[in-house]
Amino acid sequence: MTDTRAVNQRTKPSANPPERSRSAGAVTARTGVGDRFSSWTNHHREMWRESWARFFASPMSSGMTALVIAIALALPAALQLGLTNFQKAVAGWDGQPQISVFLHKRARENAVQSFADDLRGDPLVAGVTYISPEQALAEFQQSSGLGDALLGMDSNPLPAVLLVRPRGSDTTSLEALATRLRDSAMTDSVVLDMAWVQRLAQLTELGQRMSMGLALLLALGVLLVVVNSIRLHIENRRDEILVVKLVGATDAFVRRPFLYTGLVYGLVGGLIAWLLVSGGVWLLAGPISGLANLYGSGFRLDGPGFTYLVGLAGGAALLGLTGAWLAVARHISAIQPR
């Protein structure tokens, strides 16, 4: 009995058991900033790869969407490239206004040369070309076809001419320079030839504005295409979104794959647009070069280089990302588990 009591005494739980250092069960772990950043970057990397995988998983529908984006972007890009080549083509002509100074017939050669040297030193003048009466007569005979008739004249009726190229194209400065030349005792007449330059500048500005307006309209079209495509993606994955939200996923976590999908659509569309513009330039380069050779010009059509590639791909990717954001901002928040 004594032994039994002793055993019971030893096995009987104490009223005040000793306190354990840590209780058994679930333990809440805290994640550091580095772990959160690593998880965030890993998820972005995973969504980037998954977006490409989903793009190539349905090549027909994805390719059609990217092609629509490419055509919408290729049109304003081709127009802008055409304007750039047009400006390059007319750069061979003197793009600056020109002032033709007709000198008096009685002006002496040394006085004309001194007057031309003074004009070359003027800060408003970029250059001066002297055309003697003999040179003017020879050019007129060649261009007019009246060489035989002019040979019978007793004297040369054409005066010496100074072709003055202004340094700037400001209308006020040009008018002031022309007025100062008219007041000179050496000049008989002064003609400011800038009408065609103004017409060319107006046409170029009109083309640029048309290109900008077309680009804005087609960019809006790209946004609508991406919004509609991402909306269909969201509806197809509605059940998956509900399950992920049930386990505690945030809206930012849910929208991330769709944002990358829109980015991929835009990026591929921009690359295809660059290829379309490059193909168009390749088709037109030969005929345009042949036409330029007929006019004695060395003009060559410039294609879309690396700058166009970066601009089209980056701009299209930004449009795709923006369209995807607009789509998910409206539809993701409406999908809530009940």
Rank of each mutant, 00 (worst) to 15 (best):
N110P: 07
L137D: 06
D35Q: 15
G266F: 00
G266Q: 01
G63K: 05
I241Y: 01
P76R: 02
L73C: 03
R167V: 02
S211F: 07
Q113N: 12
L301P: 15
L271E: 10
K88H: 08
I99S: 06
E240C: 09
Y260W: 10
L73W: 07
Q96W: 07
M186A: 02
V101W: 13
S39A: 14
L103Y: 01
L318E: 01
N228E: 10
T2F: 08
D188K: 14
K105M: 06
M1L: 10
Y295V: 06
G248R: 05
D188G: 13
S278W: 15
G269S: 02
Q80P: 02
R237D: 10
F299P: 03
L203Q: 15
G303L: 15
A29T: 11
A317Y: 00
D118L: 04
I335Y: 00
S114W: 07
T179G: 09
G213K: 03
S51P: 08
L224M: 14
G34E: 12
V164P: 00
T41L: 15
W52E: 01
A176M: 09
A111M: 06
V226Q: 05
T11Q: 12
Q80V: 10
N110F: 11
Q336W: 05
L79M: 14
K245L: 00
Q9P: 09
A327P: 12
V197D: 03
S58K: 05
S297V: 09
I272L: 11
A57D: 03
P159W: 04
S58G: 12
H104Y: 10
G121Q: 14
D35G: 11
A107N: 07
V68S: 00
F115K: 03
L158M: 09
R20L: 08
S14K: 13
V254Y: 06
I272P: 06
L137V: 03
V244P: 01
L83R: 09
G280K: 08
E109I: 01
H104Q: 13
A334T: 15
G280W: 08
S189L: 10
I69G: 00
Q113G: 01
D183H: 02
R20I: 04
T65L: 01
M47Q: 15
V128K: 12
G314N: 00
T172P: 10
G248N: 05
T11H: 10
H331Q: 15
A66G: 08
D188L: 13
G145A: 02
R106N: 11
